[in-house]
Design a protein around this nucleic acid. Structure first.
Lengths: 405, 405
DNA sequence: CAACCGGTGGCAATCGATTGCAGCCCAAGC
DNA sequence: GCTTGGGCTGCAATCGATTGCCACCGGTTG
């Protein structure tokens, strides 16, 4: 190339990388020859002296999780806009795989986005020490991180139910190790308290369709007119289980999910959900990273937060009028009042063989001042789980689920 | 590193890249020092002299299309297994974006997989001339390509319907430019002929939820007891439209889709579908590419094909007994016999404002010997389409899904 | 005694850019 | 006319590996 244009390679380099540094005439000639030859500067050769590859890695805890679909696309778009190439890495829900993949990717990228990483904080900081990194869906001090406004979202969900006339709701919990679950539950609790709704929590369950279905058993044992599930997948699984029991949604039960994933609009009924700005989450994370790459002089970094909004579809409606046990409840009418004063009726295992049968059930809590003031209890008692449940719990994840090993 | 181990860099290099070429003792020392220092050979520096980067690009026509989710994961897994890093590139349903992205990726990868490429054959061959490439979901002679067995899948779908007792079916077509659509339709036609089912084709429609919903209008005008849709998304959209009209599925209408995408199991009712081996499609494509990288001595290459299988869920059942017009039909009972002898009743545009209202309706064709003998007619008459429909038609090819702005 | 041997390991060129430094040229200033 | 200086470009070192070639080694063979 240099020879073809009759100049030294250094001049060619300058012609491309720093426009003003070369005579306009020479530059024009070089560009002409270049486009004629289809010449493009070799990114690998360039990366060697500069150390910059113009590649970003996006580490996803599970590429098959629909939660990430729009995030991936948002990230890709933002990266492409800035002339960066995106390396997509699937951690396959395994922190060791994630580590391994990151160590392979690190030497060839300028920075990385860790989406719902399952690694420990310490491991993340180690990564961050080697390359600029942005953490997605997990607040971390001292390094750039980005989360969505779960608190506001939860509040909107509760408000929506209150406006519809509900007086009580059940929160179906996802993985306890998940930051998002804690946040969502706490905020639901708080909002319910202010709006004078009774609230109850069941779970944790795996954040999957199956997890949602598993929760039906507890719901049936202790019915309520409204449910907020940890994520859409669980909400959908829950609805399916409820419908199988003969419940009509939303006439008998209102259901709200989180995230607004692909599919939440065409499940039946279409799901009311707290929409996370998925595309933006990906795009903004990348832009934060890009900014980090630009000036390493980042002072105090605090978690950035993106707004959520409630998407009202057809899975929510006014509560049923009757005060007797709904037909889909598993037993005695007394349980249907939902005040939890009586002993839990024994569920019928034959009807719904549940993988979580050995899991202690939480007491219903009234959302009075005291309850609201207390921070969300996290794993107050050791929880025995079946092997099946434990493994499946780690298979999917709507939002941050940290490693518990 | 070389200094730390007290040897020349060349020896370090050989210790890693060609085990036999270095004294076992020296190699051991080198490896010891290396692991102590956390040294790993720099892939970029290595790539410069060798020209190999151990990276593969997977170009996806639309990362948000659920069709690709498992494909991506399969590809990632196969690449990671072989020690390759995967570059995921989103073509965003645009052939120019695709070209651009490929030209950026080509200098840094050893080979690429083109999944449902939207580029011309010629453009693909140009790419293939620069780097080994495997084409996914599009048969191409002279270069490795991989498709799923649509013919067999279509046949199984028709057989399933025949076994249930159906005597007629409607095929809801996807984009005419799509190879898969042609293949599916031809095979449906052929199988229906052999099994003595009447068959009718409507469309083309965009391969999206909305496309499926749009097809409802034509269905209502000319009801049949069974439908095979070009893909799952359309099938789901179709079901939703049908249900809105008061039809019960599968009691009134049986619906079958293609691909078995995420969501086809939790839509209502769960969809019977011709499952493509999505994960394998991705993994095998990558493995074919890897093999290609190993020995460039590929002789005659012919499209490889992966088997499909029918997943029977709840959207199919026996046909209804009655012979009168179903209540969801748009008009006169005469149309309900489905023999197509009468003139098409005018659809009611007010009820279902359809984007394809100016589209000529195909005549029903009996699947007699003559019809079966003829190859599938592809766009036999010039079709007027609205701009919206036209643009969406060109957006996809194997199975696409996105709604566009 | 020299040629030869297989097994090792160093030398140095190379991949294709980047970049500090120096040199060249021409115009302006003294 | 000589110096100075700015604009432009070439030289050459560098990034961190790979790899062909050659030297070395102790021992064997003709």
């Amino acid at each position: 190339m240099a020879a073809a244009a009759g100049v030294a390679p250094s001049t060619v380099s300058r012609a491309f990388s720093r426009p003003g540094r070369v005579n306009a005439e020479t530059a024009a000639r070089i560009h002409a020859v270049a486009s004629e030859l289809g010449y493009r500067t070799n990114p690998i050769a360039r990366a060697l002296p500069t150390g910059r590859t113009s590649m970003l890695a996006v580490i996803i805890s599970d590429v098959t999780n629909p939660f990430f679909f729009e995030i991936i696309r948002g990230a890709e778009a933002a990266a492409a806009d800035a002339g960066y190439v995106m390396l997509l890495v699937d951690a396959q829900e395994s922190s060791t795989d994630e580590r391994e993949a990151i160590s392979r990717a690190i030497p060839i990228v300028d920075g990385l986005v860790l989406a719902n990483s399952r690694m420990s904080n310490h491991a993340i900081r180690t990564v961050s020490a080697q390359r600029p990194a942005v953490v997605l869906n997990r607040p971390m001090s001292g390094m750039p991180s980005l989360v969505s406004d779960n608190a506001r979202g939860s509040r909107r969900a509760v408000e929506h139910l209150a406006e519809l006339g509900h007086h009580a709701l059940t929160y179906v919990a996802g993985p306890e190790a998940s930051w998002a679950d804690g946040m969502r539950w706490r905020s639901v609790l708080e909002a319910a308290s202010e709006l004078d709704l009774r609230v109850r929590r069941v779970g944790p369950f795996p954040p999957t369709l199956a997890g949602g279905t598993a929760a039906v058993r507890e719901m049936a044992a202790n019915p309520s007119t409204a449910v907020i599930a940890y994520n859409d997948l669980m909400a959908i699984g829950l609805m399916r289980g409820l419908i199988d029991l003969g419940a009509r949604i939303p006439r008998d039960v209102s259901v709200i999910g989180f995230d607004n994933i692909f599919g939440s609009d065409f499940c039946t009924p279409p799901l009311t959900t707290v929409a996370a700005p998925l595309h933006s989450l990906g795009a903004v994370a990348v832009r934060m990273l890009l900014q980090e790459l630009g000036n390493r002089t980042s002072g105090v970094v605090r978690p950035a937060m993106l707004p959520t909004h409630l998407v009202v579809r057809e899975s929510t409606g006014p509560p049923p009028r009757r005060r007797q046990a709904p037909r889909w409840a598993s037993t005695a009418p007394s349980a249907a009042t939902g005040d939890g004063s009586g002993p839990d009726p024994a569920p019928d295992p034959a009807r719904h063989p549940a993988p979580t049968s050995d899991q202690p059930r939480r007491e219903e809590r009234s959302a009075g001042r005291t309850a609201a003031a207390a921070p969300a209890p996290t794993a107050p008692e050791p929880v025995r789980r079946s092997a099946a449940t434990r493994s499946s719990e780690s298979t999917t994840n709507g939002s941050a689920a940290r490693d518990r090993a």
